[in-house]
């Protein structure tokens, strides 16, 4: 039988992969994709708990998270494009023009 623990374990694994991606990679686009992975892991946990409790509240929250992720990606990619236009690279190691 599939239990809640299966889904929560999978969610934890996905979230950890996302954290690893954010910390290890230096490509700004891949860091954004890792953030998407983490948001998806959170959504999976929300929906698994909604199924466990038999109420759709978790699904509504997951819907809001999807809307938030869409807005975040749009703004984030616009920032990355602006930085690329100014610097010619999206390596986060080279982004230090905010340093005083």
């Amino acid at each position: 039988m599939v239990t809640l623990a299966h889904y929560i374990t999978l969610s934890a694994v996905l979230f950890s992969i996302g954290v690893t991606g954010v910390v290890c990679r230096r490509n700004a686009l891949v860091i954004f994709m890792s953030i998407e992975l983490m948001l998806n892991a959170a959504n999976l946990a929300f929906i698994a708990f909604a199924r466990h409790h038999g109420s759709a509240d978790g699904q509504v929250i997951a819907f809001f998270v999807i809307a938030l992720a869409a807005a975040e990606v749009a703004v984030g990619l616009a920032i990355i494009v602006a930085i690329f236009r100014k610097q010619g690279t999206i390596d986060v190691g080279n982004m230090r023009f905010l340093k005083g």
């Binding site: 039988m1 599939v2 239990t3 809640l4 623990a5 929560i8 374990t9 969610s11 934890a12 694994v13 979230f15 950890s16 954290v19 199924r51 466990h52």
Partner: peptide, 16 residues
Amino acid sequence: LATILVLRLSYLSEPF
């Protein structure tokens, strides 16, 4: 993180 999350939640093993 993964280990802690899994260990803390391993009691939720009843089927849906």
